[in-house]
Nucleic acid binder design. Structure first.
Length: 276
DNA sequence: ATGACGTCCTGCCTGC
DNA sequence: TGCAGGCAGGACGTCA
């Protein structure tokens, strides 16, 4: 569930609790969630270092330490950070970082889709989690014509699938892909390479507007998402099509209903009348 | 080479 | 009433 706006909200709420702090110990409760390095390597890379910076790339959080290492954390669907004194360990705890004054930063993940790893900070771009990622949504280099050219790469794929492809734009997930296409009045089934420059431009602009607003509102909570303060995102009430199957379209009126179809194995919501 | 589909994982919700 | 089955989905593996 955490897509770009939710991960950004976690970054913003976790930063003040973590940046500048020294990690005195790292306990790993679910070693299967660690990739590319061993649990021992992960622990050694973090322990006794000070957190310099918490940043984001696509849907990944990057925790940079002052000993030239960066932890990479993907939240999957239900990954959540909880900062608290060490009460009894919660079920589904993946990893816990101990700070001073009995504060513990815990990554908790009910559905166990989260992924964590470690890289040398200087080689972070080559890490397998990040190497294939495309543009950040607000990258100035991503102009309408560049975006249009990117979409030409896909001769036989629908635009919804391409928006979910992290190698094009990093950070969109299933909820915002449907919302952005509704905003841009484009059918999710349109083949990506058929979009003209004008349509690419509208799509890009709509995506930026929606993601900015969602970030501003702390992301979307359907059910599970909480930020590092335990708060829900407030964007759910702004959703125009996601989970609105059978409801009237908010743009073209009562006579047109939102439809649900499955594309690439994922629920996709749209208005057949105003999305072409 | 590219795209489609299955898999992982667990809780919740629906319907019989 | 209880339980089976479907659904949710990010990212990767496999197959055609």
């Amino acid at each position: 569930m955490p897509e770009l706006p939710e991960v950004e909200q976690v970054r913003r709420t976790l930063s003040p609790k973590l940046v500048g702090q020294t990690v005195s110990s790292v306990r790993i409760f679910n070693p299967e969630r660690i990739f590319e390095v061993t649990p021992v390597q992960f622990r050694r890379g973090i322990v006794d270092s000070r957190v310099k910076k918490l940043s984001r790339r696509g849907k990944y959080l990057l925790m940079q330490t002052d000993n030239q290492h960066t932890a990479l954390i993907g939240l999957g669907m239900t990954g959540r950070f909880i900062v608290e004194p060490d009460l009894e360990p919660l079920e589904y705890l993946v990893v816990a970082f101990s700070l001073k004054r009995n504060r513990i930063v815990k990554l908790y993940d009910m559905r166990r889709f989260s992924r964590i790893s470690l890289a040398e900070t200087g080689k972070i771009k080559e890490h397998p989690f990040l190497a294939h990622l495309g543009y950040e949504f607000d990258d100035k280099q991503l102009t309408p014509s560049v975006f249009c050219k990117e979409l030409q790469r896909f001769r036989n794929r629908n635009i919804k699938g391409v928006l979910l492809d992290q190698s094009v734009i990093a950070g969109l997930g299933n909820i915002y892909a449907s919302e952005v296409l509704f905003g841009a009045k484009l059918s999710p089934e349109r083949e990506a390479h058929t979009l003209n420059l004008k349509e690419c431009s509208v799509l890009l602009g709509t995506m930026r507007k929606i993601l900015r607003k969602a970030i501003e509102m702390g992301g979307t909570t359907i059910r599970d998402f909480r930020d590092a303060d335990g708060k829900n995102g407030r964007y759910a009430k702004e959703l125009k099509v996601y989970l609105r199957e059978g409801q009237p379209c908010t743009r073209c009126g009562t006579s047109s209903e939102i439809k649900r179809i499955v594309l690439g194995g994922r629920s996709t919501f749209y208005c057949p009348r105003c999305q072409k």
